[in-house]
Design a binder for these strands. Structure first.
Length: 423
DNA sequence: GTTCCACGGGAAACGGAGGGGG
DNA sequence: CCCCCTCCGTTTCCCGTGGAAC
């Protein structure tokens, strides 16, 4: 496989002039294909300049539709422009709720964000009561004064623990804060987030909504073109590279992020192959590569229980006993757990793990219904090559031995041959 | 139309690991 | 020291559902 090569790191021919425009954190100076949304956004923020009461603003749209980038753009303009007016005092706080699953955690993150900018001590993520954290938060906000724009990115992560959205807009009318006017900008990937909020929150949360629809292929091309021009040397990109990236991304998610990653990956593949141009073929390879990585990461991030369930399914796959119904899979799973000297979870919980893995695209599910006494049941099989599951399991502590057993079982049944060719 | 089954969503609760604060 | 807080994966219930067989 891998061998040391002399001059392994010698500089390749460069296809990239400046890869930064293809980075996730790159902020373009103009935002394309979002004129209507930006105009609405600007109107929604206007009252801040006019010193009028401002509604909270919610942006809805799937990932990669420009919500975050539009917000960064609007806020930096807003900050610049408020500097002109002495009577407008504006601060902004930005919290990404990506890993925060409750209002409590969001409140802690907000406090820490506010304190961080003033070099005060952070507070820990557990230990306080919720009300205590909210009180600390109100104190910090009050100390800032003026208008504070609070951006809660990926706010749908908090699910139905939405107290923070009740508390913040009412902080002033409830007398928790005196000198500060909070404006919440919520960014959500989930269109139904609003509908699932509790009724008391819906009542208090006067909001303006802005929808960010997915991009189509034409729009993605228009977004990619200026970045591609900056990122690559002249004449490196073949004419069909950008349109193909746009087409793939438009078909799948309509996400600009996906299109950009695809283009970067294609560039990296072309560079690695020491090619002068980035071709259609490189884009196709990049698409495969990214898909594979996503599945691989999905598998690695499973919990021990998830790995055990996956391992059980892999065993059935190696025995060529697929699709397998969950009750048979469960028996295998229990045996695997006792072999590993690990606790086994209930059948109900195993079904949850299976449905998680189905969501990740790791496994296939078939619904069967045999009526009267056989009833309704599901059957499962792997949706990724057995070989790649084994690769992950071999790398996972506690599972190496089992992975080897499964591997030799699969070898006996000649089930790995075809997988190698698809992979 | 009725009957039957496993599925899967939901709710409540648990327990042990994070950590307050007096 | 003790009693308080939240979090997470889980258990243990309950219940509505689809659809072939009766």
């Amino acid at each position: 496989m891998w061998q040391t090569i002399m001059g392994m790191f010698q500089r390749d021919r460069q296809v990239f002039a400046d890869a930064e425009p293809l980075d996730d954190s790159y902020e373009p100076e103009d935002i394309r294909e979002r004129d209507e949304e930006l105009e609405k956004y600007q109107r929604a923020l206007q009252p801040i300049i006019d010193n009028r009461p401002t509604s909270n603003i919610f942006l809805y749209g799937k990932t990669g539709t420009g919500k975050t980038v539009a917000t960064k753009y609007m806020l930096s303009h807003l900050e610049n422009d408020t500097a002109e007016y002495d009577d407008v005092h504006l601060s902004t706080v930005w919290v990404s709720c990506e890993n925060l699953s409750s209002s409590y955690q969001v409140a802690v993150a907000l406090v820490n964000e506010l304190r961080n900018s003033q070099d005060k001590d952070r507070i820990s993520a557990t230990g306080y009561s919720q009300q205590r954290v909210f009180d600390i938060l109100y104190e910090e906000l009050d100390a800032l004064g003026g208008t504070v724009v609070i951006v809660l990115d990926e706010i749908d992560n908090i699910g139905n623990s939405d107290d923070i959205l009740y508390g913040l807009p009412r902080a002033r009318s409830n007398g928790y804060v005196d000198d500060v006017r909070p404006v919440i900008v919520g960014i959500s990937n989930d269109f139904q987030f609003r509908d699932n909020l509790s009724p008391k929150v819906k009542d208090t949360l006067a909001e303006k909504e802005i929808l960010f629809p997915p991009y189509d292929a034409n729009q993605l091309r228009s977004i990619l073109n200026p970045r591609a021009e900056k990122a690559f040397h002249d004449d490196v990109l073949s004419d069909d590279a950008v349109p193909l990236c746009a087409a793939f991304a438009a078909q799948d998610t309509g996400s600009a992020r996906q299109a950009i990653r695809l283009l970067r990956e294609a560039g990296e593949l072309a560079q690695a192959a020491d090619s002068d141009t980035v071709t259609e073929e490189h884009v196709r390879e990049a698409q495969d590569e990214l898909e594979k990585n996503q599945l691989y990461e999905g598998m690695q991030e499973l919990t021990t229980q998830g790995h055990a369930v996956l391992c059980a399914l892999a065993y059935h796959q190696a025995l060529d006993e697929v699709p397998v119904r969950s009750r048979d899979l469960y028996e295998r799973y229990v045996k695997i757990c006792s072999h590993l000297d690990a606790d086994s979870v209930s059948e109900r919980r195993v079904r949850d793990h299976l449905s998680d893995m189905n969501m990740l695209g790791l496994i296939n599910l078939f619904e069967r219904n045999e009526g009267l006494s056989a009833g309704r049941y599901h059957e499962y099989e792997l949706d990724v090559p057995l070989k790649s599951v084994l690769e992950v399991l071999l790398d996972t502590t506690r599972f190496e031995e089992l992975a080897n057993i499964i591997q030799s079982t699969a070898d006996d049944n000649n089930l790995l041959q075809s997988d190698i060719s698809d992979y």
